[in-house]
């Protein structure tokens, strides 16, 4: 009788242990840093990306966080616990940051400068398209429609194809604003990194930087698989907009040479 009783206690103890084990299944914490103004639209995008990363993370026991750091505090801040750094700052601050944090991906969400691409600092990842990409996109369209005066953009709040409609809808619902180019860049930086964490379980910044630069195949909700060039620039389609209406996407079909995302912008580094 007593023996049986002990067995019951033992087995229920094990059951409790097992149950608590399941409940406490190790949550992995993944942290991003954002450096820039708090009212920059890139931050809204990063926050949207973060909420989506956590939605995915709930199924994989991953928790994502985002620390906001001002450009002034960045000099003294300890960045050792971050998977990646997101920035919406000026070119000088960006170059300095990339220099002081050589083993972590430093995402550029706002600077279009071509020179920054051709210098190819190894940890710089430019999610926002460069000036050269936008110019090439416009030129492609003007070859087809010589009289048009279009703008080239990374994103547009009326974009609906490739499930862009869904992204615009949930961004507006959650952030109470329309998604612009910088917001898309912020969203994309967080989303591509969290997708990589989900797939590879990488939680080390140097390994993540290497993965992003060499193995990325990202669905940025613009229809094409996106990856980084050796310049650190994200290959991506560009939207052509006339009078605030989307008229085409570049690469422009039938015009672009090569007919791929590499018809837009600078492809290689300054030697």
């Amino acid at each position: 009788m007593l023996k049986n009783y002990i067995v019951i206690i033992k087995s229920s103890f094990i059951a409790i242990l097992l149950a608590s084990n399941i409940a406490l299944a190790e949550n992995v914490q993944v942290k991003f840093a954002y450096i820039g103004q708090k009212d920059h639209s890139a931050l809204l995008g990063a926050q949207q990306g973060l909420s989506e990363a956590n939605l995915q993370g709930q199924f994989l026991n991953q928790i994502y966080e985002l620390d906001l750091i001002s450009a002034e505090d960045a000099n003294t801040h300890d960045f050792s616990n971050y998977i990646a750094v997101l920035t919406a700052v000026d070119t000088d601050s960006y170059t300095k940051l990339a220099d002081t944090l050589p083993n972590i991906a430093v995402f550029n969400l706002s600077i279009k400068d071509d020179q920054l691409r051709s210098t190819c600092i190894k940890n710089t990842l430019h999610v926002i398209p460069s000036n050269a990409m936008e110019t090439d996109a416009k030129n492609q369209w003007q070859k087809k429609k010589p009289d048009s005066t279009v703008n080239a953009q990374a994103w547009h709040p009326d974009f609906v194809k490739f499930a862009a409609r869904d992204l615009n809808k949930r961004f507006k619902k959650n952030q109470k604003k329309l998604m612009d180019d910088n917001s898309w860049a912020g969203w994309a930086a967080v989303k591509m990194t969290s997708d990589a964490v989900a797939r590879t379980k990488i939680n080390d910044p140097a390994k993540m930087l290497n993965y992003l630069k060499t193995d990325l195949a990202f669905d940025g909700q613009k229809g094409s698989v996106m990856s980084f060039r050796e310049t650190g620039q994200l290959r991506q389609p560009i939207l052509l907009v006339e009078n605030n209406k989307i008229v085409a996407e570049a690469p422009v079909r039938g015009i672009a040479k090569p007919p791929t995302l590499d018809s837009l912008g600078i492809l290689s580094c300054e030697k």
Binding site: E52, L55, Q56, F59, L60, A163, D166, L167, D195, A198, R199, D219, Q221
Partner: peptide, 22 residues
């Protein structure tokens, strides 16, 4: 789920998620 890249496997007997497959 298209943007979370998963197959969510639901147990029909109690409509809870049994597995999430990336």
């Amino acid at each position: 789920s298209e943007s979370t890249n998963m197959l969510h496997v639901i147990k029909a007997s109690d409509n809870t998620i049994e597995k999430n497959i990336l």
